[in-house]
Design a protein around this nucleic acid. Structure first.
Lengths: 183, 183
DNA sequence: ATCAGAACATATCTGCCAGATATCTACAAC
DNA sequence: GTTGTAGATATCTGGCAGATATGTTCTGAT
């Protein structure tokens, strides 16, 4: 059997916090889950239709602007718990940067160093984003969720720091590769 | 315009090393690029057909067993260089583990710690895989490629070590979340 | 010698998903 | 009053993974 839609999981999760329109679900996921999750409209609207047909989600009163506001039902909450409890099958790896670097000889050392420097810069930017996010989460009034939120922030921080350290090591390796003896 | 197929890039890359059948392309990618890339047959065979129609790849003499062996053409090599030089647009984030941990309160601290312990164990296993891979690459006779290969191994190592460190931090955070005062 | 099964090989289909595009409405600023 | 911005919904294309089906060649055990 195919893997169940992870969009359903994310949408139900968003609606478990508060009722929202499809548009707002997208915004909530981008803002709050943005550093480890993303959804597109092309997935969200069909998902909401599926979920509504299955009785996991129900249209509440219309909001201020036009558009339907959905709320999660009891069945939906049960389904959310079930989906959360399912094992997470890690996605197959697909790292375009490493693919390029593996064939780096065709690209030349200088171009490769440029790629690595870009990653390094992005990792540094991420780190300050995460610092701000951490301060936000540490001020989170909902003590019951704080630790879970912090765990996701920590994942981002460790990942970004690892990229930084890797970039420096890679730059050193590629500087050595540059020596005129090669080829 | 849509993102060009990254499968084409990987397949051309594989064929740039030596002529191969579609089956062997898949095996080569799994074995050699496996820690940062993957391809399925459902992608490889259509890609080969596209590439052949575009003259980037050509059927060589049949191999020992039945099945067509493809080799890269000069145009194909040029196309490979062009694809390599294209900027790598990072994939949108989709981390099922962090999604689960974010909604961890619905799952309970013990289940969450179980998820983290699984990651920790997998990261530890990866580390010894990378150690073996590093020894292999350091013995690589092709000096011109060694640095590029090492860069990809280093990425895996840094990533795995980051996961280990994160897992320990997460376990500590989730132990604190367990205290009976919560909810 | 033959037979089983492992490895080699190709092809197709379903469903998840991102990103682009096309509309439409409410509201605020000018 | 019109123009821009935010809110809102919907649809289509194409990349991609994973499952499945099917056939061939080689090898090792009996």
């Amino acid at each position: 059997m195919a893997r169940p839609s992870r969009t359903d999981l994310a949408v139900l999760g968003a609606l478990s916090v508060q009722p929202m329109s499809g548009y707002a679900v997208r915004a909530a996921i981008t803002e709050t889950l943005g550093h480890f999750w993303s959804e597109s409209f092309g997935q969200i609207y069909p998902a909401l239709a599926r979920l509504e047909a299955a009785g996991l989600v129900r249209a509440a009163a219309d909001g201020r602007t036009s558009g339907r506001v959905f709320e999660i039902t009891d069945d939906g909450l049960a389904r959310l718990r079930a989906l959360l409890a399912e094992p997470d099958e890690p996605a197959p790896p697909r790292n375009g940067l490493l693919l390029r670097l593996f064939f780096g000889r065709l690209l030349g050392p200088e171009v490769c160093r440029g790629l690595v420097r870009d990653v390094r810069a992005r990792a540094e930017a991420s780190l300050s984003t995460y610092a701000a996010l951490r301060r936000e989460v540490e001020a989170e009034p909902d003590a019951g969720n704080r630790a879970y939120f912090l765990v996701t922030v920590a994942a981002g921080e460790h990942g970004a720091r690892a990229q930084l350290a890797w970039a420096d090591e890679a730059l050193a390796l590629l500087a050595a590769a540059d020596d005129p003896g090669a080829h």
